[in-house]
Structure formats: structure tokens, C-alpha cells
Design a protein around this nucleic acid. Sequence first.
RNA 1: GGAGAGGUGGCAGAGUGGUUGAAUGCGUCGGUCUCGAAAACCGAUUUACCCGCAAGGGUAACGAGGGUUCGAAUCCCUCCCUCUCCGCCA
Length: 428
Amino acid sequence: MLDVAFVRANLDAVKLNCANRCVVADVDRIVTLDDERKRLITETQKKQQRANEVPKLIAKEKDPTTKNQLIAEGKTLREEISALEKKQKQIEADLDAVLMTLPNMTHPDAPIGQTSDANRVIKKVGEPRNFDFPPKDHVALVEALDLADFEAGASVAGQKFYFLKNEAVLLELALVQYAMQTLLARGFTPIITPDLARVEVLEGIGFMPRDPNPETRQVYTIADTDLCLVGTAEITLGGMHRHQILDTAKLPLKYVGLSHCFRTEAGAPGRDTRGLYRVHQFTKVEMFAYCLPEQSEEIHLELLAIEEQIFQGLGLAYQVIDTCTGDLGGPAYRKYDLEAWMPGRGTGGEYGEVTSTSNCTDFQARRLNIRCKAAGQKGTRFVHTLNGTAVACTRALVAILENYQNADGSVTVPEVLRPWVGKERIAR
RNA sequence: GGAGAGGUGGCAGAGUGGUUGAAUGCGUCGGUCUCGAAAACCGAUUUACCCGCAAGGGUAACGAGGGUUCGAAUCCCUCCCUCUCCGCCA
């Protein structure tokens, strides 16, 4: 969420930003509603001031007639204040609703464009492997090597669920270990988060679990509760410190969280329907940082560097994407994606998204009410929050299986994962 | 899940309807004293918002949200959380 004062002071910039990010929002209405809100507050406070005086007078008043008059006045004041507060609440709800539609501001260097076509490739690392045999896609590999059971997944939980089997299980656990160890070495605090979170937390992060349209709602909600299955540990890691004032000296806080992720994948029908690429549940190791505003750009680059380190370590070719305005989503100020080469994707291989790291500046912190304060100093500031994928297991599995396959149908285990997988080659 | 207790300022801990934003202690910061320090003494020590060019003035908040009342940290309701005991379980 943006600061109302900021919006008022930068009306044109906010409107341009909305246009760049393909968001339709009634920015002018924010000013109108905010004016009305302030007017109501001022009026309420005047009445409240009198309402505070009256009881004190009553306590001292001896004359019964005057006393009764004061009691009557107090009664009237209470009714008036109550009515004003009701009005104020409504205005604030309206204002909030408009503010909720506004996306975060955008980094000046982010590419401007409506669709993913405008995303900018800023770096390519590693060469897509040349095969001297026709490479299989991961679905074929998984079937041949008995690494997953999609039919059982569909039978038990429905389309886009799966059972991992055999070495795929070991690979997933190895990926988690590998990512965790990499982040631990960089001073991140390891966390295992809840897989469920309250609706308010989801909303604070920028999800819309109350979206009445099931076609666009991204998350599963739990019937008869105010809980949702988390789509990413970003939600829980970001919610972890909500309503807190953090000590400036202890920032940045860097966490590496492990959780399952659940996504309805509504609105993505027909896309990547096969295999592990787009599924309703997967395991993910996620980085999350809370920091001072002046630290966030540097940390964003650090998160990107870590993602690159992890995929370089896995020996996978990838490209780095600077995401364009139209593709940023609501909370991100800037977003980099890593796309790994996937030989089985499309015809003849394509890059497929494996990680994503966003600098959300104070957009989430404002909604989640996470501030920081220097000891001994007056005043607080909203922190900046950042997130980034360390490893999304299923996507990484796709890339590993397809890139490490051999002519004989076996798959070589990436060297960094061997300590946990316990073998060099997966074969049947 | 059942029974009970409880959630007050950085911490500890008073306060059960009337100048209580909140005693007291500790901590922290500033000052006096001192060559310096300790001790002692004095003072300060939350956050958000509104009005105002400013100085300054005001409103709100005692887990959260409602309610009763002229007046609520104090009474009532709902929710969240913590603790103890029992049950259950990995």
C-alpha cells in the first residue's frame, strides 16, 4: 500500500505508474476521500474534547439542575461522536479500498511495458546444452525412471497433484539442504514456517484471498476459518514481525524459510499442464529480508546473486530477467527472475522461470505495520521487505532432470547434491 | 477438545467506574557532584493521528473489536494469545 501523503504529493507520478503497470485506479478519489476523512477527524476531536470536559464538571457539580443539563449534554455528545465515527470508518474503508488497488511505485530503471514481451534479459550465464541424442522432457524421464506418480496424485487430490517417488524424493530433500546450507553460510536465519496463514496476513503481503472471483483467486482458503494455505513462505516470513517495531541496529534481518506452497493456478488453464512445471503444491526454500530503506537495493542485488550462486552450483544455464512494469504484480518495486534452460520445454528447449526476487520497499511493511526505530531516537520508519526464491523444488527438478539426462535414459545427479542423494546416477 | 487463571509503558509490577497516559521499582538517556567513575540527587524516557507557517494545541491507544455509562485500564459480549491441570496425539 502506498502512503496517502505520498500519493497526494505525487499525483501525476502515481497515475503514470498505474498506467505503466496496467492498473486502473481512481487516484483523484483518494484526495477527495482523504480530505473528507481529515474533516471528520477534526470535527470528531472537537466534540471529543468537550466530551472529556463534561464528566469532570459533573463530578464537581453540586447543583442538581446544572448537573442534569451536563449529563444530557454528555449523552448528546456521545451520540454525535458515535455517528461521526461511523461515518469516518466508512470513509476510511472506501479510502483503503482505493489504495488497495494501487500498485507499488516502480524502480526508474525497470523496463516499461505491458506484457512479458517487454521483460529485459540482462544476463545469460552458461550455454544451453547440446544433446547428441533427442532429449526427453521431464515427464518422460520421470515416467521412465519411476520418479513420480501423476495418476495417483490426480486420484488422491486431483489434477496437478503428484506423488514424488524414489530418487526424486532424495533430490527434493537434497535441494532443500543445498539451498539451506548455502544461505546459512551467508548468515541467514533458517526458519520452517506454518503452511497456513490468516487472511489478513495474505492481504498484507499483497495477495487477495477474499477475491470473490474464483477465476482469479490464487490461494486456497480453509472452510469455516479465516485461514488460507500459503502460496509461498514469503507470506509467513513477512507476517512473522507484523505489528512490530524493530530495532534499527538489528537490521537487516535475513531469513531463509522452508514451506510448502499451495496455488490454485486459477487463470492459468491449459498452460504447462503436464508434469511438475505448474502444480498445486510444491516445496520451496524462500529468502526474506527486512531492512532499512537505504539498504533494500543492495540487498535485492544480494538476493539475486545468491539465486545465481545456487543455480551456478547446480550447473544449470540460465538468464536473468528484469521484469517490466506490466508484469511486476502489485507489491514489487523491482523484480528479477531467473529462467533456467529446460531442454524439454517447447520445441527444442526454452528458458523457464525458476526463481524470482522482489524488492517490495515499504509496500508490504505499511500494510503489515512493520516499522523500525533507532534506540534513543524519536520516530519510526516503515522497513523495506524483500523476498527471493532460493529453490522451488519442482521447477528445479524439471531443470535438473532435463539437463542432466544421458543417452541411455539415466540422469546424472548434480555434484553438489550427491552428498544428500547418495549416488551419482539415477537409472533403472 | 475439557476445566481454571491471566494479558497494563523497554522490563517488572500497582491499579475494579470519576483530573490515571497510567503509582512504584529496574533499565535507558541527560544534568549536578567528581581528576574520572561509582553512589547520591534532579530531570527526561511510548506510538499514531488531527489543527497550525511555527511556537504550540488537541484526539486516540492499558491484547483486538464491539457494548453499557455523563464518565471504563476498571462492568458486559465476541475474538486472539499466554500459562496451569486433564484428555488426545506425532
